[in-house]
């Protein structure tokens, strides 16, 4: 007799894809098992017992059994329906989609535990759903911290190359952050000092300072964060150009 490997974990649904007549493949970032792809059978039928539980941006308690290629979802209970709350606020919805896509791209290998990233995704979605801060700032804070947890922290204090103490005014994304005048490579950007202050505030969680910035500074900060993310991922994120400020 073969024993079916059943396991239970909590996770956030990152993406869903249609499969056959009424099934879906769900990509879930789990707390203990990293990114997992699993089949949810019959989920697209209106009478599905999973219903809205396996929609993107929902935090769920899952029971799965291990399949040969894909696992199979056998039970799902909602822990937080972030997606349903985000759908009513278009800017927050687009920022949430970018959070999910970033998390998927940062987990290159399936089943590689990524607890810190998981906690950041849950925190980011909760902040967006609760409308705690402007959605674009929440997204940028998430990206900066998620990149840091993946080993791509944007250097914002000392020179990335020689370690000379800052503050420095130039940013070279290819090098990894701020650079001193001696190390500055051709093509490095020179953002406003307030923009670098905003990025430091977002990385460190200083929300009063981040929210005190002007729209122009936020736009410049978002641009730098997007370039930093896409440079290190070596690909463009589809959702980023569609993110609305808010």
């Amino acid at each position: 007799m073969t024993l079916v490997a059943l396991y239970r974990d909590e996770g956030v649904v990152l993406r869903t894809q249609k499969l056959g007549e009424a099934d879906r493949i769900v990509t879930v970032l789990t707390r203990g098992n990293g990114r997992v792809r699993a089949v949810a059978k019959g989920v697209r039928r209106t009478r599905s017992r999973f219903g809205a539980r396996l929609e993107p941006a929902t935090r769920v308690d899952l029971q799965l059994y291990e399949g040969r290629n894909l696992d199979i979802v056998t039970q799902a209970e909602t822990l937080d329906a972030f997606g349903a709350r985000l759908a009513g606020d278009y800017p927050a919805h687009t920022a949430g989609a970018a959070v999910l896509e970033t998390a998927e791209r940062l987990t290159a290998e399936e089943r590689e535990p990524a607890l810190r990233l998981y906690l950041l995704v849950v925190g980011g979605l909760r902040a967006l759903a609760d409308r705690r801060h402007p959605s674009r700032l929440v997204l940028d804070a998430f990206v900066l911290r998620a990149m840091a947890s993946a080993g791509y922290q944007m250097a914002l204090e000392s020179c990335t190359r020689c370690g000379a103490p800052g503050p420095h005014g130039a940013v070279a994304v290819a090098v990894g952050g701020v650079v001193c005048p001696r190390c500055r490579p051709p093509g490095a950007a020179t953002p406003a000092a307030e923009t670098l202050g905003l990025l430091r505030a977002l990385l460190g969680g200083d929300w009063p300072a981040a929210e005190a910035t002007s729209e122009r500074v936020r736009r410049e900060g978002s641009g730098l964060v997007a370039v930093h993310l896409q440079w290190h991922l070596e690909r463009r994120l589809r959702s980023l150009p569609l993110v609305e400020g808010g």
Partner: peptide, 14 residues
């Protein structure tokens, strides 16, 4: 709720 379904199986959002 879908007509003909059971209430106990409805998910929380629905």
């Amino acid at each position: 709720l879908p007509v003909g379904g059971d209430l106990e199986y409805a998910d929380e959002v629905t």
